[in-house]
Write a protein that binds this DNA or RNA. Structure first.
Lengths: 242, 242
DNA sequence: CGGTACATTGAAAAACCTCAAGGATTGTGG
DNA sequence: CCACAATCCTTGAGGTTTTTCAATGTACCG
């Protein structure tokens, strides 16, 4: 397990965190967020490429991404890998496992990443005092199911170009929420990872990028992407499952 | 909403139901199951092709299938449909919505079907008296996530023949749990529905059935299926995501 | 600076889909 | 009970999408 950082009083807490409108505290009243400060008193740094947790590990906490980004993936008995999600700052990791004893997926940092730790036992304890937190956890878990089902939909019914367009729009929209440019960003994952996530090969992804660029939908140079025609991309994606 | 049947004392209750080792009561001590009798006092008959609930409906109950079978499907804004699951007797429907206010999917009966109704409010109420039920609900919700993720894996990394083999083995295994023959059964869904679920066209599914039959893996006549070589099917599926 | 991982592009092959026709099954009304 | 319609299933031919294999180019890291 990567190194842990105990949070000193001076360190940022949930009640003072810039991400509090997105992360775990979302939907919890201003005057109740301080309850979370008791729960979240640890932070973990994960170097690029290292795992925050592995499939099968005891799931004893939920993690909020403070900076960086993470991919979650499943490995089946035959060794096949399927990436099930890319998570950005302000998003939560470990929700799929927290209902079970053990993690359903492996979480790997796409870049040097820092996550805040919310131990499940502690959460359960303060749930009585902060009913909104209980509700919040339900909502977040439900979102996790929704996310997974949208991916099923994308893999099941969309063609490659629609999947990639939807993927780019999803990243764009989530970066916008964080205050970054929705039209110009750096992808933190490789072509192979994008392909795996979308059920395509890395070559297909690369060709689609080139084609989109040729059609002036975007500009791309390696992992730098600039979306030029969002509306055309939306039309292409044609749907809301991205 | 289809007609409701109030359960009289004479009617079957959870504590007397044959399916109690599979359905909601699973994992709950014999002497606590009677708590569920207070909660589950209604049954609904759904004629073939009719919906138990629709996407977006208020999700106020979980349903246990007493007899028959159900498909769950998503419809996106563009009208595309993706079937996300086929549920058999003893399995639960509505778990993906119960954490939210509203249903994430639509549930449609594949044949005349009867479900038992477990209202969520009532469940929440007795949760304090039956801690095992709380735990049980968590486990079942987690299973729902796992199921969805396995489908993602299947759609993302497997080829058509592997998907169909896995699908057939999944049905077979679940029928076996119910005490039916694992090698001879009647599919309750059309080729089109299987195809939609597996991200294939109905023609591809039909051709695969014919090919499997030619290779003596199974015998098939319309919806009657007889698995002849389970081990070969397992080898073909090659994995455990079915 | 050189090695390694990552990305692009092309050509050929494979997988899967679409369109089309015909056969089987089921249910319904006369 | 039969005939007919409607639905579902099978099979073929041909086309499209996506993959595979291979070669080359580009960026990143020690």
């Amino acid at each position: 397990m990567p190194k842990k950082i105990l949070l000193t009083p001076e360190s940022m807490r949930c009640s003072a965190c810039m991400l509090s409108t997105l992360c775990l505290p979302i939907g919890i009243e201003q005057n109740e967020v301080f309850h979370l400060d008791e729960v979240v008193n640890e932070r973990i740094r994960i170097p690029k490429g290292k795992a925050l947790f592995h499939q099968g590990d005891v799931a004893d906490a939920i993690y909020g991404i403070r900076s960086g980004s993470i991919k979650t993936q499943l490995v089946d008995s035959a060794g096949l890998v399927q990436i099930t999600g890319f998570l950005l700052a302000g998003e939560l990791v470990g929700l799929d496992g927290f209902l079970e004893e053990s993690q359903l997926s492996t979480a790997i940092a796409l870049e040097d990443t820092e996550v805040c730790v919310a131990p499940i036992d502690d959460m359960d304890r303060i749930t009585a005092q902060v009913p909104a937190l209980q509700y919040q956890l339900r909502r977040l878990t439900s979102n996790e199911i929704k996310r997974s089902q949208q991916l099923v939909m994308s893999l099941g019914v969309l063609r490659s170009e629609q999947r990639l367009a939807g993927f780019l729009l999803s990243i764009s929209q989530r970066l916008a929420v964080l205050g970054y440019s929705p039209s110009e960003f750096v992808l933190r994952m490789s072509r192979e990872e994008i392909g795996n996530y979308l059920g395509l090969t890395l070559e297909t992804v690369s060709r689609l990028f080139s084609r989109f660029a040729r059609e002036n939908l975007l500009r791309v140079r390696q992992r730098d992407v600039q979306l030029l025609d969002m509306q055309a991309l939306r039309d292409l994606a044609g749907t809301d499952c991205g």
